[in-house]
């Protein structure tokens, strides 16, 4: 699974970048400073599953297409 580190990117540019990568790859891991709850809600409504976990101040969110 490819990892996309969006930390340091302006917040207004992140959702579009994440969605474009997901369109290309189908699954993605993102690194982000805070849990991106609005983005996760949006992705789940688009048929993705998101697993978020925090370690050492960084949130890792694994995004996959929902099975079935």
């Amino acid at each position: 699974m490819e990892t996309l580190d969006v930390r340091g990117l302006p917040h207004s540019e992140r959702p579009q970048l994440i969605l474009k990568k997901l369109e290309e790859l189908g699954e993605l891991e993102i690194l982000v400073e805070v849990k991106p709850v609005p983005v996760i809600t949006m992705l789940e409504s688009k048929g993705y599953t998101c697993e978020a976990e925090q370690s050492q101040g960084v949130w890792r969110v694994k995004i996959r297409k929902k099975q079935g």
């Binding site: 917040h11 207004s12 540019e13 959702p15 579009q16 969605l19 474009k20 369109e23 609005p38 983005v39 949006m42 688009k46």
Partner: peptide
Amino acid sequence: HIVPMLTWLEKYSTKVGQEGVPLI
């Protein structure tokens, strides 16, 4: 920050990859 972000997520996030969408 909040108003354009939520507007974009609600209205345009579903259209990414299917048609041209504005940036936030």
